[in-house]
Structure formats: structure tokens, C-alpha cells
């Protein structure tokens, strides 16, 4: 692998990111989400729900979900960008290897989650006087787990898109939400029906949200939850990286130019 080529692709997506229209998109949705969920959770807390930390729990969960969303988005939407701008053939007729492109989009996603995290934390503090870093150092491993899960979802839907092309582009936005109900983002996994709980405990994201809620409710950092999330992420990531590579090879057999 060549670091120069990885850096080249990284720059390609950062040049795109630096345009005003794209910057607005990066900040617009988190702002709307935080405002809506923040107001809702403050209202629930004031109505004496019996859960004293409901506002911080929901808003921290929201930020974690945005991290997964951002990691997924940087893979899927960057694939679509190449289709839409008829640049896919340009990229893969150069010495660029698929593994280098994959590394680049993972790095782009990982770098942008800090922008998302910083911006969201600041906004939550300004609007609701709540500190999502209350969770302490545990935020770091949880962010890493959510980023890994975002890559899993991203390469899963990306693999479908590189084979079927633009007719599957809705996956870029839809796929993460397929996992959201079972990940118990805003409610405990016990709120799900038994079959839903069974699915939920197979997802790495569920362990992060459960662990986060446990800490914010005064419990300790759960090494069990963290390790389960890590192992499941590694297992799924290995599978989807293989799937994405195979789908790309299959797509190349049909011709990459048909995707543009």
C-alpha cells in the first residue's frame, strides 16, 4: 500500500468537504437533531419521568449515533460522489488499489467524527447546559466502537452499491436506520420484545448504548460490554471488508464504467 495514494484520496474528499454547501450539510443535520431531541428530553425530564438523567442520556446517545452515521456516510456517499461525477473510472484506472481507497475513506470518516463530536458537544452545552463528556474517559473506547460499527454498515451497503450501482443509492441513508431500533439507541434493550432483544445483543452498537446508559446512571465502565462490542465489530468488519472486496471484483467483471 502507498501512503501517498491514500493521502491523495483523503485530500480528494477533504477538498470536497471544504466547499460551503458541504460544510452546511455537515453542521445542519446535527443541529436540527440536537435541538429536537434536546427539547424533547428536557420536557420529559421536567415532567418528572422518574429518570433524572434522561436528557444527558438521550443527547449522549444521539451524539454516539451521529458518529456511527458519519463513519457510514463517508464510505457510502463518497462512493456515490464518484458515480455522480463520473469519476469512478478515473480513480480505478490509476495505480490506486481498492485497499488504499478503503483506507482513505475510513480515515476521512475517522477524522470527521471529531468535528461532529466537538460541534455537537459544544451545541449541547450551549443550548442545554449539559456536558456529554460526563461519561469520562469511557467516551474514547465507545467512540472507537461506534466508528467501527459505522464502517461495518458503510462497507455493507457500499458493497451492494458498487455492484448494483445508483439504483441502490438509497442504502447510503437508509442502511444505518435498519440497525437503530435493535441497537436500543434511546431506550434500554429490555424495552424490546424478546425476539428484538435477541437481535439487539448480536449487534456491537447495543453494548455501547447499554454501557453508556449504565455509566450515566452511576454504574462502572463495563469491560464485558466493551469487549463484546469490540469482538462483534471485528467479526462483522472482517466479513464486510471481504464482502465489499468481492462485490468490487464482481463489479469489475461487468465493467466499472456502467456504474457512472
Amino acid at each position: 500500500m502507498s501512503f501517498k495514494r491514500i493521502w491523495g484520496v483523503f485530500l480528494r474528499y477533504y477538498y470536497y468537504f471544504s466547499k460551503l454547501d458541504n460544510l452546511a450539510e455537515v453542521f445542519y443535520w446535527p443541529t436540527i437533531d440536537i435541538f429536537l431531541w434536546g427539547m424533547t428530553s428536557v420536557w420529559i425530564q421536567r415532567s418528572e419521568s422518574g429518570i433524572p438523567d434522561i436528557a444527558i442520556i438521550i443527547l449522549t446517545a444521539l451524539v454516539f449515533w451521529q458518529i456511527l452515521w458519519r463513519s457510514n456516510y463517508e464510505i457510502t456517499v463518497n462512493i456515490l460522489q464518484e458515480f455522480w461525477t463520473r469519476n469512478f473510472v478515473n480513480l480505478f484506472s490509476t495505480p490506486l488499489k481498492l485497499s488504499e481507497w478503503m483506507c482513505s475513506v475510513m480515515l476521512v470518516g475517522f477524522s470527521k467524527i471529531w468535528i461532529t463530536l466537538g460541534f455537537s458537544a459544544l451545541l449541547i452545552w450551549l443550548l442545554f447546559a449539559l456536558n456529554i463528556f460526563e461519561i469520562g474517559w469511557a467516551i474514547l473506547p465507545y467512540i472507537a466502537m461506534m466508528s467501527l460499527s459505522g464502517w461495518v454498515v458503510g462497507f455493507l451497503s457500499g458493497g451492494v452499491m458498487v455492484y448494483f450501482g445508483q439504483r441502490m443509492q438509497m442504502l447510503a441513508w437508509m442502511a444505518p436506520f435498519l440497525f437503530a431500533p435493535f441497537s436500543a439507541v434511546f431506550y434500554p434493550v429490555s424495552a424490546l420484545p424478546p425476539w428484538g432483544q435477541a437481535i439487539g445483543w448480536c449487534l456491537p452498537t447495543t453494548y455501547v448504548f447499554e454501557g453508556m446508559r449504565s455509566i450515566l446512571s452511576g454504574g462502572p465502565f463495563s469491560m464485558h460490554y466493551f469487549l463484546m462490542s469490540f469482538l462483534l465489530n471485528m467479526l462483522f468488519l472482517g466479513g464486510v471488508l471481504f464482502f465489499f472486496t468481492r462485490m468490487f471484483q464482481k463489479s469489475r467483471q461487468k465493467g466499472l464504467s456502467r456504474l457512472e
Binding site: 501517498k4 495514494r5 493521502w7 491523495g8 484520496v9 485530500l11 480528494r12 477538498y15 470536497y16 466547499k19 454547501d21 458541504n22 460522489q81 461525477t85 463520473r86 469519476n87 473510472v89 478515473n90 480513480l91 490509476t94 495505480p95 490506486l96 464504467s257 457512472e260
Partner: peptide
């Protein structure tokens, strides 16, 4: 084929050269 529309000529050639 084309190149990313929202990037400038300079940016596109910079990326391409690095590849």
C-alpha cells in the same frame, strides 16, 4: 468521463498526481 464537479482544476490535478 469527467472529474469531480465541485473541485477546481488545480485540486483535481493535485489529487490525480498524488495517485
Amino acid at each position: 468521463v469527467s472529474l469531480p464537479w465541485s473541485l477546481t482544476i488545480e485540486q483535481n490535478l493535485d489529487v490525480y498526481g498524488r495517485l
